[in-house]
Design a protein around this nucleic acid. Structure first.
Lengths: 207, 207, 207, 207
DNA sequence: GATGAATGAGTATTCATTCAT
DNA sequence: AATGAATGAATACTCATTCAT
């Protein structure tokens, strides 16, 4: 089991630390049993604390689901931002972003699954990510690199492909990452030939 | 409320007719409250029959979910097959198929939503459709029309786009249909320009 | 599975034959699952007939339980009467009766178990047997062979020992039969030494 | 209604006290309606607590049945041990034990009935008592007081007689106690004459 | 801040029994 | 006499949530 989020809270006050434990526990149990089939009892027992303590930290179960998904998403966004800060080309940015998210998710068991499921159950929870995506798409359009609409429908199509890629992600099949990026580029109106080139170029931006 | 499936059972024995009523009712309630939040009581009350009768026809709630999704899928497949029987070109077939499915779904309130949700909850239930899809993709590859892998991963990517399109479908925004087809073609390796042409050509095959 | 009671009805009208099938089926299922855990559905499915047909023959489930127990009891009584008709000595009668009942029960899988369980659940159903027993005890008292009360309490004590013996009965351990008889004789006030002798004498009256 | 077991838990923590209330309530309702016909709702309503609370203390209904039977059995065993601690003669011990158990049971409405019924439904629950019995029988054999086997079959015969006696027990007919003891002695191979003597001798050991 | 204990409100499922044909 | 189909009534068990300490 990962102690990622309680580690993140190390040095903070007790409240934050307990919260971290609960998020780690939720993540673990959601991953084991599926979000819908996870019971609060399972989570607090796993966390080693009373059922009632949970309610000192979260409004209800859904609140925990959001917190878990958000926590993961924030980490991923941070990781992405660090990687793409110097990249101007929107297509390269997209590829590097996908790469960063997926590789980071891979380092943490459960992340992909929980994120993908949460996206289905509480799509609103991840709107911020949508903003980031739209931004990047619009920039690509402005630069003539992309050829697509950037309305809600198309963003949903893109998100679906990304999430579906995340679901299919496995440690022993990293090619999924590039294939997802390639599909995203195609959706964005890049020709197959050009998309292939971009994938190669992007390699320069990560090891 | 639609009586589609009880109408389909007209002339058959009482057992089949009652089953039809239950499927219609499940569809209706699933559509109203969401599959997860639908209670058997709601469904049987809506169906105008005893709670116990349900269990003469279905093993449990999941069994009904599958039956509903399968019933819809079978209707759609039948409608598609009728439309594409004479079409050789896989790209055109794909566009016409998408068109047929979505227009048929639109004629029946709830179909898109229930199908899309069921696809998430019980993906195995819709495997047959996957076979049909793969078949078409392979044919397109053989003819040099498509340029893509046709393994499970890619089929899932395609399905995600299709389902996401289905979810976004609205009676007052039929452009969604073509846009979904266009995205599918792009994923299949058709260039944006060519995809646009194909969409136009396909118009000849449906009114 | 035994067809004993439908065989008994051979040659009689259809009503009697169907009834026989239901009794055999009840016996079988009661034996398999225990009387309390047997469902009507199990029984009628096993009998190969509709659930509703059952109610053409029996008032309710308890009625079947009684019918099964009574049917068995009647067979046993008949077998016993045939064996003891010429035996005057009440002690010998008792031993031969026990022997006959238990050996007959052994020939029919399920009989011992169902009889013993039914005795617990519907003790009233087997009152007749009680009458027979009391009669024999009183005769033994009159002849000075037994030394005991013959009121309801004592008859219950005797019945408990008999039923407990029936429960412990196994094909591969026939000694249970004599040991039960011996205990019954002891309860009836026969000294252990005398009881032992009686058991030997009784051997002359059955093969 | 008796508060015996909640009184036993007086001074312990709340958990133990609530458990005591539930055992008392189970005992009461089992006694009123029979174990099989008792519903959890009846029991928790009688206990004045929520249905759900029950499940904080017991796994399911059977668990309560066992707990009730075991609680009674433990009390009886304790009472017996106190009475017989100084008695060496196994025959006297047996009589005094029977006497103690039955008189104690009589002081608590429902005890006899529930114990007897539970013995039929969950015989395994009372195995310990069996151990105590076997022990005493073996000792009697060694001292030449008893003349019987002490295998499982015979212990079951003895238990049946005891339980049957318990079932027949009434406040206004205490003779049942001695008659049960007498039957047990007879089963154990004591001659009727000697058994009668022992019963008299035993009177010295209880008031 | 943490928790032991309690609970309201739900909810799927079972099964004996009935009735129209 | 037999049955396909339907159902009333029950009931055990679950789980998120609350509250006194």
């Amino acid at each position: 089991m990962s102690r990622h989020f309680q580690d993140r809270a190390r040095g903070q006050n007790k409240r934050a630390r307990t919260r971290g434990v609960l998020i780690d526990s939720g993540l673990e149990i959601f991953g084991q049993k599926g979000i819908i089939n996870s019971r609060l009892d399972d989570i607090t027992k796993f966390a080693g604390m009373s059922n009632a303590t949970f309610y000192n930290h979260f409004k209800d179960k859904d609140d925990l689901v959001s917190a878990v998904a958000t926590s993961i998403a924030l980490e991923l966004v941070a990781a992405v931002e660090e990687q793409v800060v110097d990249i101007k080309d929107p297509a390269i940015r997209l590829v590097v972003s996908t790469n960063t998210v997926m590789r980071t998710a891979l380092q943490h068991e459960r992340w992909s699954y929980v994120l993908a499921t949460a996206f289905f159950l509480v799509p609103e929870g991840l709107i911020d990510v949508g903003g980031y995506l739209k931004n990047n798409v619009d920039r690509g359009m402005a630069q003539g690199v992309f050829n697509t609409a950037s309305d809600e429908f198309q963003l949903n199509q893109l998100a679906s492909v990304f999430i579906s890629g995340l679901r299919g992600l496995k440690k022993d099949n990293l090619s999924i990452i590039d294939r997802t990026s390639e599909n995203l580029l195609r959706l964005l109106g890049v020709t197959p030939a050009k998309a292939s080139t971009i994938l190669d170029e992007a390699k320069a931006f990560y090891h």
